[in-house]
Write a protein that binds this DNA or RNA. Structure first.
Lengths: 198, 198
DNA sequence: TGAGGGAGTTAACCTAGGTTAATTTCATTT
DNA sequence: AAATGAAATTAACCTAGGTTAACTCCCTCA
């Protein structure tokens, strides 16, 4: 599990989105983070101007409201880029923390350096914009779901979108992902159970 | 108001995000749309794989739920890029229509051709990714607002985010932007009025 | 073995916002 | 000036989900 090997994982992930990236440009050092279950990679409010890559494991993005209520923005399973685009780009504190739900292997680069070194590489930029397109589309879908759908519908959608996660993570996190309390989710599940009995 | 002039508007808008774009690459023809107040540039469900630019005027993005309820995703004032990133990128039907709230001058390019012609230009790609970063960040903020804030809070935020629009557009569209019914918005405004009397 | 302690369930009550419908206000057309 | 009609307000009633709290399962750890 050396750094070279991990770095190659990251490269091949990027290469899947658009090939011929000239990785020789990249000299900024990779950093390794081993984040154990329930620990935080970084906390809300810190500055996390790094490009993180989740090699293996499972995390959630959690943000806490002024009144202290937790809200799960999303879940992410490796292998996958993670982190806060907003914080990287605007050089401002992150609006959410990243918590490991299972032991996770994560690496990171300083985004400022990474971007400066790679931004003249056309293949990289194209790949970066495809990544942005993708996360934008997901956010747009999520916006729609909150406005148009009931909590019950959102729960059913969650079960389709993350079929394996339903068993793997505590129910309260699912509730906070669909934007309701654990109590309300329990009620909904109860109702669904009765409905399917008929 | 000839096409050359309009095209220059679009170019200089892009150039503000990142200069030195080589516009000589671009040969796909620009198209002009004059969309009168309350008319649609395109309707939900159509294919709108074009890069639109709103030169002047005001529009809203409207999507209609299965039950026939309207929801306003956002408002856009010219000059600004408009359209559906999702539809452009995934070549799928748009999930919302664009309706003019005031007479608007809009131009468009076929996105497939535009992108093919410009994608080798580093300055353009960089500028495109900055655009994507920006719209992603806005969506993320909007996601947060729906989960964490009350409708009253969202209304107050709207008034700050679009100070001029409060007077310019019908209240029902504001309601549908913050995700509530016109009746509920009216109630909230009433409550705020009383509160500020004290 | 048994004593926490967190996660989920259930029930009772509360509240924000939805629904329907009546009323008013204002803008446009004739 | 009258007539139409859409937009906003208000009131009465309803419902989804929040809040609090009691109760039950585990699971862990001593």
């Amino acid at each position: 599990m050396d750094k070279v090997h991990l770095q190659n994982n990251v490269f091949s992930y990027f290469n899947r989105l658009g090939d011929e990236i000239d990785w020789k440009r990249l000299s900024t050092p990779i950093e390794v983070h081993l984040t154990a279950k329930s620990e935080y990679l970084f906390q809300q409010g810190e500055s996390a101007e790094r490009l993180y890559f989740l090699h293996s494991g499972l995390v959630r993005y959690v943000s806490v409201s002024g009144e202290g209520k937790e809200f799960t923005q999303t879940f992410a399973k490796g292998p996958r880029i993670i982190g806060s685009t907003r914080s990287m780009v605007t050089r401002s504190p992150v609006l959410f923390g990243i918590q490991a739900l299972e032991d996770s292997i994560i690496t990171s680069y300083d985004w400022g350096e990474f971007y400066q070194q790679m931004r003249r590489d056309n293949a990289f930029l194209e790949c970066y914009s495809h990544f942005l397109e993708e996360i934008f589309i997901l956010k747009e879908e999520r916006e729609n779901t909150f406005v148009k759908d009931s909590a019950e519908r959102r729960y059913l959608d969650f079960c389709v979108a993350f079929p394996d996660l339903k068993e793997r993570i505590p129910q309260q996190y699912i509730a906070s992902y669909i934007g309701i309390t654990p109590v309300a989710l329990s009620r909904i599940r109860q109702k669904l159970k009765l409905k399917n009995r008929l």
